[in-house]
């Protein structure tokens, strides 16, 4: 599976975790999968859900709720796995994130995206690319390369 990141698009894919509306650049999204049984990898942190068989290759899957500091809940029929491509050490790597629901694709021009303010409440500013508004709601645009950076992952694995 040769997944590639498409750069330079100004469309953003939005999804919901808890009540918050998050977005990632559409160039990083490759697929949306229904929630399937994951195979747990021993000795990994709780927000690393496990691995799944993704058309013959191994796809690591993270739990978005736990990763972004939300309480764990039972999956609903809207729960799904968002397959993203992130850049690790210069190579595109596929990874899955479980989200509560996927919403729509929105277009934001660069000037519509404001830098992230300090909102505290467990959100680390580093991981946020910027904030935009859609109708009356804030959309948190994530910096996913940062979220899934290798140090971060190694850190994840090291936690026992």
């Amino acid at each position: 599976m040769a997944a590639e990141i498409i750069y330079g698009l100004n469309s953003y894919f939005t999804f919901r975790i808890g009540s918050e509306l998050f977005a990632v650049n559409i160039g990083n999204v490759t697929k949306i999968l229904g929630l399937t049984e994951t195979t747990k990898v021993p000795n990994s942190p709780r927000y690393f859900k496990g691995i799944i068989n993704h058309f013959g290759s191994v796809l690591p899957v993270f739990d978005g709720r736990l990763k972004f500091g939300f309480p764990e809940t039972e999956p609903t029929k809207n729960t799904c796995i968002l397959v993203l491509v992130v850049e690790i050490e210069g190579h595109p790597v596929s990874t899955g994130v479980i989200v509560d629901s996927v919403e729509k694709v929105l277009i934001f021009e660069p000037e519509q995206i404001k830098p992230a303010p300090s909102i505290g409440k467990g959100f680390n500013n580093e991981y946020i690319f910027g904030i935009a508004t859609f109708q009356t709601e804030f959309v948190i645009i994530l910096n996913i390369d940062k979220i899934f950076s290798e140090e971060e992952i190694n850190l994840i694995i090291a936690v026992e």
Binding site: T39, V41, N43, S44, I51, N53, G56, S57, V58, L59, P60, I88, E89, H91, V93, S94, T95, F148, E150, I153, N154, I157, A158
Partner: peptide, 18 residues
């Protein structure tokens, strides 16, 4: 199947099989 870059640190497993 290789576990891929994200799971490099999990070295007690050499891969996964479907």
């Amino acid at each position: 199947k290789p576990l891929g870059k994200l799971l490099n640190a999990q070295d007690i497993f050499s891969g996964a099989s479907i």
